[in-house]
């Protein structure tokens, strides 16, 4: 795992340092110590512990028995897990494809010179992520309700069809994606906007003088210089998407007919509803391998040939 996982780090071309002798070999480690003092017990140990649980049968309140790969073979053969993984992949793709460009457009719009109320807009876009999911669920219930919901009232008003937002298995995943995008798009936009702030405005001015149009400036200045932050947003949003749980749990419980059952929901059910910690942990480890593999592919793809 370590070898594979090593890749996403080369997100940005490494800075060539010629004068390694300028600092002591111990310096970097000293900077790392405070973080790892915390991370080793609370991050590394707990993750390793979780992976280890995947190899045991943990009888709650009883013995812990090593069972080898038994949990893994069970989970891999479980058709429900396959469905959950497939749903997760589909929703992940739909989500990323909608979310990232939208967040980028908002960030660029926010960065437009001579814009008034810039901060107000940011605050407004940031609001959804700050709202308690309990309340969000309540609001979206009212929004998505088939008979009395606001959305269908609007659709009926413009002469459209009534849509079964959460009841139709082919629509429900999209309703969940829409909710999720609504919750986080402003937040990622604010992060991207902060990234745009580090791009010196002189670059744009110089480009404008050279006659570069908006698209050219976006392609040749914004995109490359924002790439480190964009990569962060893509990786963070992707991992969150892979671990999609709260929204479908709250709105659909994975239904109807398992159409919104996600991998983490499967893990949750195994561990916390069925008290089967081993199978839950095994499923989590399998999901982690999938996440790491796809993230590496993503990063490779995004880096393209621009590196150098």
């Amino acid at each position: 795992m370590a070898r594979v996982a090593a890749s996403p780090i080369a997100l940005v071309p490494p800075v060539r340092t010629r004068k390694r002798t300028l600092y002591s070999a111990w310096t970097p480690y000293l900077f790392l110590v405070p973080f790892f003092v915390i991370f080793i017990p609370f991050g590394a140990a707990t993750v390793l512990g979780a992976v280890a649980i995947g190899f045991v049968y943990w009888e709650i309140g009883g013995d812990i028995e090593f069972v080898g790969l038994q949990n893994f073979t069970f989970v891999l053969r479980d058709s429900v897990f396959q469905i959950a993984l497939w749903n997760t992949l589909r929703m992940f793709l739909g989500y990323i494809v909608i979310l990232v460009p939208l967040a980028m457009v908002i960030a660029v719009a926010l960065n437009r010179p001579n814009l008034a109320c810039r901060r107000t807009f940011q605050v407004v876009y940031f609001l959804p992520i700050t709202m308690s999911l309990i309340v969000v669920a309540m609001v979206f219930d009212l929004l998505y309700d088939e008979r009395a919901g606001v959305l269908n009232a609007f659709l009926t008003w413009i002469g459209g069809p009534r849509i079964r937002w959460l009841e139709d298995p082919s629509v429900a995943p999209w309703s969940i994606i829409a909710l999720r995008v609504w919750r986080v798009v402003g937040y990622y936009a604010v992060i991207l906007y902060a990234g745009l702030q580090s791009i010196p405005s002189e670059l744009y001015e110089a480009a404008a003088i050279d006659g570069a149009n908006g698209l050219q400036r976006f392609r040749h200045i914004t995109l490359p210089l924002l790439r480190p932050v964009t990569l962060f947003v893509i990786v963070a949003a992707s991992i969150a998407a892979w671990e999609l749980f709260a929204e479908p749990y709250v709105l659909t419980e994975g239904g109807p007919a398992r159409s919104t059952l996600t991998a983490v929901m499967y893990i949750y059910r195994q561990a916390f509803l069925s008290f089967d910690l081993g199978r839950g942990a095994a499923a989590a480890a399998i999901l982690a391998v999938a996440i790491i593999a796809v993230t590496i592919l993503q990063v490779r793809f995004l880096r393209g040939d621009h590196d150098a």
Partner: peptide
């Protein structure tokens, strides 16, 4: 018995039946 599994295994069957599948 196993009501957690009942909800996640039989629940979808009830939904499929209701949907006419």
């Amino acid at each position: 018995w196993d009501w957690d599994k009942m909800e996640s295994e039989i629940g979808p069957i009830v939904e499929q039946a209701a949907a006419g599948q």
